[in-house]
Design a protein around this nucleic acid. Structure first.
Lengths: 207, 207
DNA sequence: GTCTATATACAGATAGAC
DNA sequence: GTCTATCTGTATATAGAC
């Protein structure tokens, strides 16, 4: 394994953290170089432009989310999977309170600027949304699955924004409990016709 | 009335629009000066620093929101008021899809930077939240009022983020319908004990 | 592949004539 | 109060020695 990739990886990790903390536009290449312990001029050997670093960072996040969602997809039933997403949102709430949601922050900031970075950031949220929709679909919600997924993801994102804005991790806690009871209420209502649901759950266990 | 304030107002309006469109950090004083049709050097006669313009813009938004909320507060009943907030969120969805929520955008971007701008932006969301909490309180939700307000505001903000991210006004439409039915469901449940609610509604009509 | 020195561009901010 | 010219700092990006 060539050490070549080593610095590249360090640069991406440094950029990922700094962009989360400061935003993309406020993060300088000098910041990234210093954090990664790479001389400024050397950064350009690995990335032609700042935008290229942005692309690499978002693609890295995309990869991590793909793996995360895939791992949750192996949980027994869709409701547990959705709860796993919700639980994950509560990890490291101190960081979220300080810097907000990494994904939501990128979408917000880059969405205004357009271009390939905006599209890549949007795909992060898109994948999350589709995965959720998929889980609600497997719970037997049919045409309501999309609406529920939208409600879930936008609620989580809104929760992150308020948590960040008010620098208060407890807000996310309370809101998550609320979402949890919401999930339970819509799924228990669904449980009145359980046969179909169970069937679908077992079905997708092989998907 | 001295024309002095004229340019100042134009600068604030230009900055307000541009900051919404591009974000605070990406908006230059040259942009603002040009949009307001004021020579760059002259900007500093009205604002000592860029941050000072930011303060003026957020205070302007705060004033507008104070008036807006006060005007809705005159509506007959709290549910109608909350619906007014929701309806307002659906105005100009094309703009929201392009540039996101002006308030949410400020909170997201400036929240990372700290300082007085972050605090002022946070107060915008805070006022909205408190006002909503007040309305839910007057509907008789008691200790649940805060949780409902949190759920409402964070849902709206999440909805804005997704609408902006996916550049799709229809998302906000669907999500708003969903929120509307949610509001109806929690208030109609409340209506099972209507005496107390009506009492509180009439009570605050004089507040 | 690595790193110093530097080019280039543009931002925020100021000086000073009018 | 107004506006041109400019200072100063700093960001992205490049050149070129090693």
């Amino acid at each position: 394994m060539p050490r070549k990739t080593d610095k590249r990886i360090r640069l991406i990790e440094a950029a990922k953290a700094l962009i989360h903390q400061q935003g993309f536009n406020l993060t300088t290449l000098a910041d990234i170089a210093q954090e990664a312990d790479v001389p400024l001029g050397n950064v350009y050997y690995y990335f032609k432009t700042k935008e290229a670093i942005g692309v690499a960072v978002i693609e890295k996040r995309a990869q991590e989310w793909t793996e995360r969602l895939a791992s949750w997809s192996q949980h027994g039933d869709p409701l547990t999977r959705i709860m796993a997403l919700l639980q994950y949102s509560l990890e490291d709430l101190e960081t979220t309170a300080r810097y907000g949601c990494p994904v939501g922050g990128l979408c917000q900031e880059l969405g205004k600027q357009g271009g390939p970075l905006a599209d890549l950031a949007a795909k992060l949220l898109h994948d999350m949304l589709k995965w959720s929709e998929d889980q609600f679909g497997k719970l037997g919600f049919g045409e309501k699955a999309a609406a529920y997924a939208l409600d879930l993801v936008s609620s989580i994102q809104g929760m992150f924004l308020l948590t960040h804005t008010f620098k208060d991790p407890k807000l996310a806690q309370k809101q998550a409990e609320y979402l949890q009871s919401w999930l339970e209420s819509i799924t228990s209502r669904k449980a009145e016709a359980p046969a179909k649901v169970v069937e679908m759950i077992e079905d997708e266990a092989f998907a």
